[in-house]
């Protein structure tokens, strides 16, 4: 079974063979192109393969959801990208989507329906929790026993969609010690990347937002900062580096932690 862990079925090929996947894995731009985020994509694919989830990706037929354009104010560009994506997915008869990016999750779930794109959309942390609840995924405790993990809430999961517990419920399976930051859940402080801030310098101020948030995380003396968003991951990783704490504190996605716990990385 181990040799199939990196199997990535492409939707067009499945469709040509008359097959349909259980779920479409929406990889997102960060997960496709960003070196750090690609590791999250890899971890999630390994988990899916290890428990035999029949998934597919759109591959080169996937485009940006349009989220950064819409949040920046460019509705035209958003509409072009979104309507193309919906045409592709409706063409394949997609019913269910899972994604490792909260921004993709939010826009696919809440904003695509108005344009005719109605799907059941899950964030990967909710999907992992579902797999655990159904008994399909067993997370091996032990690897993280004695480690201290603090979870950084993504705004687009938390306040935007009221998803606070799913990522924590998955992390609980790791037998680690979970420590909450002073601002957590609905009070969680943004990493600084949302609303298309990722692609521009911050406005003039006296501090970077990711440094403020990293300081809050470091206050609880974690071994690991867990994130559930590729952009949060980048911001927190940079923050830890700026604070020169990268030796002792690592930033991992929830999916990466599960994959590591289950020995899915070679």
């Amino acid at each position: 079974m181990q040799e199939n862990l990196t199997n990535v079925p492409i939707m067009a090929e499945l469709f040509a063979n008359g097959e349909s996947p259980e779920v479409l894995f929406w990889v997102g731009c960060a997960g496709s192109f960003d070196d750090r985020a690609k590791k999250i994509t890899g971890a999630f694919v390994r988990i899916l393969n290890s428990i035999g989830v029949r998934f597919a990706v759109l591959g080169t037929e996937e485009s940006c959801t349009g989220d950064p354009a819409r949040r920046a104010g460019n509705e035209f560009l958003f509409q072009m990208l979104a309507q193309n994506n919906i045409a592709v997915m409706n063409g394949y008869g997609i019913k269910k989507i899972v994604t490792t990016c909260p921004h993709c999750f939010n826009i696919l779930k809440n904003e695509y329906p108005a344009l005719g794109g109605e799907y059941e959309v899950l964030h990967h942390t909710a999907f992992l929790q579902q797999m655990i609840d159904e008994g399909r995924l067993k997370v091996e405790g032990g690897a993280f026993a004695g480690k201290r993990i603090t979870y950084h809430d993504s705004c687009y999961l938390g306040r935007a969609n009221d998803i606070y517990e799913a990522p924590r419920n998955v992390l609980i399976q790791l037998d680690a010690q979970l420590a909450e930051m002073k601002s957590c859940k609905s009070r969680g402080l943004c990493c600084g990347a949302g609303g298309a801030q990722m692609w521009k310098e911050a406005e003039h101020g006296n501090k970077e937002i990711n440094i403020e948030r990293t300081e809050q995380a470091l206050e609880v003396n974690p071994d690991i900062i867990a994130s559930a968003c590729p952009f949060c991951n980048t911001m927190m990783t940079d923050g830890v580096k700026m604070k020169e704490k990268e030796e002792g504190v690592k930033v991992f996605d929830v999916a990466e932690l599960v994959a590591m716990a289950n020995g899915l990385f070679a």
């Binding site: 990196t6 990889v27 192109f33 890899g42 080169t60 996937e62 485009s63 950064p68």
Partner: peptide
């Protein structure tokens, strides 16, 4: 986003190279 379907300047043909 308009030309490469991603906010970064990557070739859209490389989108699934990660696999």
């Amino acid at each position: 986003m308009e030309n490469n379907q991603a906010p970064w300047q990557f070739n859209p043909g490389d989108r699934v190279n990660w696999k």
